[in-house]
Simulated scan of single mutants.
Amino acid sequence: MNAIIKRDSPLTLSYQLKQILEEMVSSGKYKIGDPFPTERDIAEQFGVSRITVREAIGHLVYQGILRREQGRGTFVTQPKAYEKINELISYTQDMRNRGMKPSSKVLALKLERPSWEVMNSLRLGESDKVIKLARLRLADKGPMTIQTVYLSYNVCPEVYEKDFDWTTQSLNLVLKDLGFKVVSAVQRISADIANDLEAELLEIPSGSPLLIGEQISYLGNDKPIETLKSVYRADRYDIVVN
């Protein structure tokens, strides 16, 4: 393979590598079910660190292109639906566009150690902390979705330290006011059924269908700023992708 990592590129090494690895799959070099090269082999082939390889593979796992199996390795899988989003609309604006009045109930606002998935998505170190903001989002006073967002505390501590009213405040607008311009995102859409807690919060029977949106948002320098998981009532919400 002739693809190379350009160290003078404004794109991060992990992003360049992700594009190369994704092309290796989309070109048919590796087919669904095939084992994928090890982190060590990829690092040696492209002259990058294993941390860089781990970040790149993590993005492909998030997109559903690869899957990790404990004790076995990494394999090519059938991608789930995901969409590169260039026009971002907040939940608040989305509901207003639908002619509904948005509001929120705060479920959690705290600092914590990130899970491996969040750490990988936000490209954090093991000692870094994240801000967790979980809210029950309402529309016309009825529950619509449970949203949980994680942000790096080192990048935007103001989200946690300042006294924002998260029952009405848009996180997108707060980030914009703090000088963070989110320019793109990758969103994966899937289906699930409600567990007991989700059912209680969304006021639906346990086992009811849900729409799940998982998103990573990026700044202009390809730096991830947040991860967001939205758990929607399937009977009240639809997702339209242009």
Score class of each variant (00 low, 15 high):
residue 118 V to S: 02
residue 77 T to A: 12
residue 116 W to N: 00
residue 23 E to F: 08
residue 64 G to N: 15
residue 57 I to C: 01
residue 72 R to M: 05
residue 36 F to C: 06
residue 117 E to P: 01
residue 112 E to N: 04
residue 117 E to W: 00
residue 40 R to I: 14
residue 105 K to P: 04
residue 138 L to S: 05
residue 140 D to S: 12
residue 79 P to H: 09
residue 128 D to Q: 05
residue 109 L to S: 03
residue 69 E to M: 12
residue 108 A to S: 13
residue 130 V to T: 03
residue 44 E to W: 09
residue 126 E to K: 10
residue 72 R to K: 15
residue 17 L to C: 07
residue 55 E to K: 02
residue 118 V to D: 06
residue 137 R to Q: 03
residue 23 E to G: 09
residue 132 K to W: 04
residue 64 G to R: 14
residue 79 P to F: 12
residue 122 L to R: 01
residue 75 F to R: 02
residue 17 L to W: 05
residue 58 G to I: 07
residue 131 I to N: 02
residue 49 S to G: 13
residue 119 M to S: 10
residue 26 S to C: 01
residue 8 D to I: 09
residue 63 Q to E: 15
residue 124 L to G: 06
residue 25 V to P: 09
residue 121 S to Y: 08
residue 119 M to I: 03
residue 59 H to C: 01
residue 69 E to K: 13
residue 99 G to N: 08
residue 56 A to T: 00
residue 120 N to C: 00
residue 37 P to G: 12
residue 51 I to C: 00
residue 10 P to W: 05
residue 48 V to D: 07
residue 113 R to G: 02
residue 72 R to C: 07
residue 120 N to S: 07
residue 106 V to P: 09
residue 140 D to G: 07
residue 101 K to F: 13
residue 122 L to T: 04
residue 26 S to A: 03
residue 84 K to F: 15
residue 137 R to Y: 03
residue 97 N to L: 05
residue 126 E to F: 11
residue 105 K to R: 13
residue 91 Y to E: 00
residue 129 K to S: 14
residue 23 E to A: 08
residue 79 P to V: 12
residue 54 R to T: 08
residue 115 S to C: 03
residue 44 E to P: 10
residue 25 V to Q: 09
residue 125 G to Q: 06
residue 46 F to G: 05
residue 74 T to S: 10
residue 106 V to S: 12
residue 14 S to K: 07
residue 77 T to D: 13
residue 120 N to D: 06
residue 78 Q to A: 11
residue 111 L to A: 10
residue 69 E to F: 11
residue 20 I to P: 03
residue 95 M to D: 00
residue 59 H to L: 09
residue 119 M to N: 04
residue 106 V to T: 12
residue 110 K to F: 10
residue 38 T to W: 13
residue 48 V to A: 06
residue 92 T to K: 11
residue 131 I to R: 01
residue 111 L to R: 07
residue 86 N to R: 11
residue 124 L to R: 00
residue 108 A to Q: 05
residue 131 I to D: 02
residue 127 S to E: 10
residue 139 A to S: 11
residue 121 S to P: 00
residue 133 L to E: 04
residue 88 L to R: 08
residue 125 G to Y: 05
residue 30 Y to E: 10
residue 29 K to C: 02
residue 74 T to V: 15
residue 10 P to A: 08
residue 62 Y to R: 14
residue 55 E to Y: 14
residue 73 G to N: 10
residue 64 G to A: 15
residue 129 K to E: 15
residue 23 E to N: 03
residue 103 S to E: 14
residue 23 E to S: 12
residue 129 K to G: 06
residue 68 R to Y: 13
residue 15 Y to Q: 12
residue 142 G to D: 13
residue 142 G to C: 04
residue 104 S to I: 01
residue 54 R to K: 09
residue 85 I to M: 10
residue 57 I to K: 01
residue 49 S to R: 07
residue 56 A to R: 00
residue 39 E to H: 15
residue 142 G to N: 11
residue 43 A to R: 07
residue 117 E to C: 00
residue 72 R to L: 13
residue 68 R to P: 01
residue 21 L to I: 04
residue 112 E to D: 07
residue 60 L to A: 05
residue 16 Q to C: 13
residue 114 P to Q: 07
residue 126 E to G: 04
residue 90 S to E: 12
residue 64 G to H: 15
residue 137 R to D: 00
